[in-house]
Write a protein that binds this DNA or RNA. Structure first.
Length: 391
DNA sequence: TCTGGGGTCCTAGGACCC
DNA sequence: TCTGGGGTCCTAGGACCC
């Protein structure tokens, strides 16, 4: 049987900021903008003690924790740290799947089969990640990816949880239905209406093929039913799949009505999208314009290009056409453009990517990463890029 | 001072064809 | 007097995740 490990970096963005600025250590911090539409993306454990949590508007977080230190995102730096994390994991097993910037699935079947004390082996890995990268993590070990993910969520921070198939009824079934990975805040209340308040309640009804439950969940019913019975994938996806879409959106400084008011924002969204598509070396045929109204409802309209493109003017003109045709009378708080039906453009000369992978793969030490990041922050090329993005 | 931004996948309904 | 029906492709919206 396969042994799958899920590794989840604890409060990753917050931990990364503490590494850059050790004076933040032990303090309540949150990553996010302080402005009108800022929300918390990650809070340190010190801040969580005050009730600060991700997804919370920053003004509410500040109300809950007046000493809260708000720190802006540094995504390029997080990606560099994340790469070091994955390199370190790959030293233990080459079968690593990047589940997100701060999560990995690892097939540990082979490395652990040779170990007398598998638990000590995993603890060692956990401590060396902490020591060498300065990043704490929680680990979940189980026969499937879903169970490993559920396991790593059980103990945080620095948890290590093992779930065997026979442990499912005692460990997983008592958990509230809200903790089911794959069931979110829309479905959970509907399941509760059916009398399902724990994962065990779900398993019981699912195994009886309860018609109301099947109707409610659609195709996902079969996947979820398999998961709670110890089934589901244990396959590690080594290659990141080709992206299916690339999108850029921005919340406006104030609600806007009419094309003239969103012109400059839409222009910078198109420019940023073009840059990103070019960096990924993708062109697309589908251009979707997205807007959010003042009631926070999302609307979208799609256009199709005759020739695939990632040209900023082409993307902008298509977005403008859609905006004027469908949204000119709407009061909007967000505009975005997504490029879809992606294709690889004809081979061009190899373009240097913004972050040279080879370069930071060599740098194992966090300190070097930080120095490199800070150096790049001051570099003129990056300044120019951020200027472009602002226009 | 109400509520981000990046994605993936699924579904319902319409257009179109035979 | 009643609404064929199956298949495919496309679009908009929505649920979910980090």
């Amino acid at each position: 049987m396969a042994i799958i490990m899920h590794v989840d970096l604890n409060a990753f963005f917050a931990a990364a900021e503490v590494l850059r600025d050790p004076s933040l250590k032990g303090k309540p911090i949150a990553i996010g903008h302080a402005g009108r539409s800022g929300i918390v993306s990650t809070a340190s454990y010190e801040a969580r003690a005050y009730g600060v949590h991700s997804g919370q508007p920053t003004f509410q977080a500040l109300k809950a924790c007046p000493n809260l230190i708000l720190v802006d995102h540094h995504f390029d730096y997080y990606h560099m740290l994340s790469n070091s994390f994955f390199s370190k994991i790959k030293e233990v097993s080459p079968l690593v799947e990047m589940a997100s910037i701060d999560e990995a699935f690892v097939d540990m079947t082979k490395p652990l089969s040779q170990e007398k004390d598998p638990i000590a082996f995993c603890r060692n890995l956990q401590f060396s990640l902490k020591e060498e990268l300065g990043l704490g993590c929680s680990m979940g070990i189980a026969p499937t990816k879903w169970l490993a993910k559920m396991a790593s969520d059980l103990k945080k921070p620095m948890g290590l949880t093992i779930i065997r198939k026979k442990d499912i009824p005692s460990v997983i079934y008592p958990l509230p239905i809200e903790s089911f990975w794959g069931i979110g805040k829309k479905s959970a209340p509907r399941l509760r209406e059916l009398g399902i308040s724990t994962i065990g309640d779900f398993a019981k009804k699912a195994n009886a093929d309860d018609p109301a439950l099947m109707e409610l969940m659609g195709k996902f019913f079969y996947t979820a039913k398999s998961w709670v019975n110890g089934g589901g994938s244990n396959q590690i996806e080594l290659e990141a799949p080709d992206p299916k879409s690339i999108g850029v959106s921005t919340t406006l400084g104030h609600d806007c009505q009419g094309f003239a008011e969103v012109y400059s924002s839409l222009r910078s969204v198109a420019d940023e999208l073009s840059l990103r598509a070019k960096r990924e070396r993708k062109e697309g045929y589908g251009v979707t314009l997205q807007v959010k109204d003042t009631q926070f409802r999302l609307h979208s309209k799609r256009g199709t290009l005759v020739h695939s493109s990632n040209d900023a003017d082409t993307l902008f003109e298509e977005a403008r056409r859609l905006y004027e045709a469908y949204f000119n009378d709407m009061e909007v708080r967000l505009v975005g453009i997504t490029l879809e039906k992606l294709v690889d453009p004809k081979k061009e000369e190899v373009q240097m990517s913004l972050w040279n992978y080879q370069e930071y793969e060599k740098m194992d030490k966090t300190k070097l990463l930080i120095e490199e990041f800070n150096r790049r922050l001051d570099s003129p090329s990056l300044m120019r890029l951020s200027e472009v993005a602002k226009k």
